[in-house]
């Protein structure tokens, strides 16, 4: 069953056609990675899905419902959640308060405290809970934001470069985190440049190039595709 369906999605910024008739279907339960060179339109596609940008034409269907005209917060209520590219934590507030703000509309009192404790353990941030989020390491900020996004118990989790700036060990740990979430039933769409991460988690990969879907398949198929190597992997290895 498809959870997210993009139909002929178009977005122009002036004369620049950043999203060009994109069709993309996400199956419930899959981990789908979105790759492509800089400027391919990956982040714009995320912003369209989240409602921060509105498409010139085309439709976005989530769990069968057309959400193209919904405001961002309403899409979150439907079961979408996101971790941004630049860690979007509340820098001036404590780690605990960051999680509390994410959780408080669903839980209260003892239940809220238990859920915060569970998330802190999941993220490996127990000893940092009183720390101001702005003082965390880059990797920890990424995890905290993943924790905030996950706390909403979304049906679809969007991750924009979840491992950017992480060490290979941290990247691997993040991959395991994503796999655990997926095992619990969360569908994941991730933008990622780190091919080790993509290989670790992705069930399917879509290559975006110049705003269009360029190729789609398993990671092995994508890596074997010479056209992809020419536009993306070739550049990356050069």
């Amino acid at each position: 069953m498809s959870l997210l369906e993009l139909r002929k999605l178009n977005k122009h910024f002036g004369g620049l056609h950043v999203t060009n008739s994109v069709d993309l279907t996400l199956q419930t339960g899959e981990i789908h990675c979105l790759i492509g060179p800089n400027g391919a339109g990956k982040s714009t596609l995320f912003r369209l899905i989240l409602g921060e940008h509105h498409p010139g034409s085309g439709d976005i269907l989530f769990a069968g419902e057309n959400i193209t005209a919904l405001k961002s917060f309403a899409r979150i209520h439907r079961g979408l959640s996101v971790k941004f590219q630049v860690p979007g934590v509340f820098k001036g507030l404590s780690v605990r308060q960051n999680l509390e703000i994410a959780l408080q509309s669903r839980q209260r009192g003892a239940e809220l405290n238990a859920e915060i404790a569970r998330l802190l353990a999941f993220l490996g941030l127990e000893s940092e809970q009183a720390q101001i989020a702005g003082n965390l390491s880059h990797g920890q900020k990424q995890w905290l934001e993943i924790g905030m996004a996950v706390s909403l118990k979304p049906r679809l989790l969007l991750l924009d470069e979840p491992t950017a700036g992480m060490s290979p060990e941290e990247t691997h740990m993040t991959g395991e985190m994503v796999q655990r979430l997926n095992a619990d039933g969360m569908t994941v769409l991730a933008i990622e440049h780190d091919m080790a991460f993509v290989r670790q988690v992705a069930h399917r990969v879509t290559v975006l190039h110049l705003g269009q879907v360029f190729a789609q398949g398993s990671i092995d198929e994508i890596v074997a595709d010479e056209r992809v190597a020419a536009i993306y992997l070739g550049q990356a290895h050069a």
């Binding site: 917060f73 959640s81 941004f84 820098k91 001036g92 703000i101």
Partner: peptide, 17 residues
């Protein structure tokens, strides 16, 4: 909590619903 969250990062606050 929500008011200070909006001060810290309005986009993040909105994307928490």
């Amino acid at each position: 909590n929500i008011i200070v969250a909006i001060r810290e990062n309005p986009e993040r606050a909105e994307m928490l619903g």
